[in-house]
Design a protein around this nucleic acid. Structure first.
Lengths: 124, 124
DNA sequence: TTTTCATATGAATGTTACTTCATATTCATC
DNA sequence: GATGAATATGAAGTAACATTCATATGAAAA
C-alpha cells in the first residue's frame, strides 16, 4: 500500500488515541506527577498507568526524570497544548452538540436497534 | 474512570490513528478526489476506502459533495494541515532518525529476537 | 424502466491493542 | 547487602478495530 505519511505519523496519533493516555496528558497539564499520584488520581492500577506512560514517553509527549525513588513525569507542553487547542477549536466548530463523530461501532449499534425496532413494529 | 477530555477527543485522534486514513488525508491535500480515484491511487479496494472515508467524514476531517454519480471528497484543510504541521515539527525535533517512537509491539518483538539470540548463543 | 457506473453497507474473519494480575527491577535507606 | 517503596515488565485473556468479499443502494443515461 502507498504510504506517504509514514509509520511515525500513525504512531503519533495512535498514541493519542486512548482514553487512559488522554487522561494522563490532561492531568499532567496541571504539573508534573509521579506514577503513584497519576494512578491514584485517575483511580487506575499502577501497572496500567506505567504501561500507558511508556508509549507517551516513547513519543516524547511526556518526559520523565528521577527524583529519589520516584519517576516524575511532565508534559511536553509545546506539542500537547497545541494539539489540544486544535482539537478544541475543531470540536467547537464541528461537534458543538457532540452529536456527530460517530464510530462505525456506534452506527452498527444504531442499525441493530433500528432493525430490532422494525421487527417489533412488524410483529404487531 | 476519570475522564476529563471526553470521548470526542478520543474519537478525534482514533480516526487519525490509521495508515489508510492518513494516506487518504494526505492524498486529498493535493485536491478533491472521488472514491474510485482514491481507491486506484492508493491501490486499495473501493469498499475499504469507503469504510475509511466514513469516520473521516463523521469527524469532519473531510467533506463530501455529489457530482453526478460520484461523491467528491475534499480535505478540511484548516484542521488537517495544522495537525500535520504540528506532527512534522514534533517529529523533526524528537524523532529525527525515526529511531524512537516504538510501540509495545515493537519492543515485544525486539525482546523475542533478543531471547532467541540468547538461546542460540547458549546452544553452542 | 432497465442497464450501468459509482459508492455504500453488512457480516464474517483476521489482526491489533488494552487490560489485568503476577512478578521483576530499581533505587534509596537501614 | 537486606529491606521496603516506587515503578516496570511479561504473558494471557479479552475487547476493539480493520479488512475482505458479497451484495445493496443510488443516480444518471440509454
Amino acid at each position: 500500500m502507498k504510504r506517504g505519511l509514514n509509520e511515525t505519523c500513525n504512531q503519533f496519533f495512535s498514541t493519542l488515541a486512548n482514553p487512559t493516555r488522554l487522561a494522563i496528558l490532561e492531568l499532567l497539564r496541571k504539573g508534573p506527577k509521579n506514577v503513584t499520584e497519576i494512578s491514584k488520581t485517575l483511580n487506575q492500577e499502577q501497572s496500567m498507568i506505567s504501561h500507558n506512560l511508556k508509549p507517551l514517553e516513547n513519543c516524547n509527549f511526556v518526559f520523565a526524570k528521577r527524583k529519589k525513588k520516584e519517576r516524575l513525569y511532565s508534559l511536553n507542553k509545546e506539542t500537547i497544548e497545541q494539539l489540544f487547542k486544535i482539537f478544541a477549536y475543531h470540536a467547537e466548530k464541528y461537534c458543538p452538540t457532540e452529536g456527530k463523530c460517530l464510530t462505525d461501532r456506534d452506527l452498527q449499534e444504531r442499525r441493530r436497534k433500528e432493525a430490532a425496532n422494525r421487527l417489533y413494529v412488524t410483529r404487531h
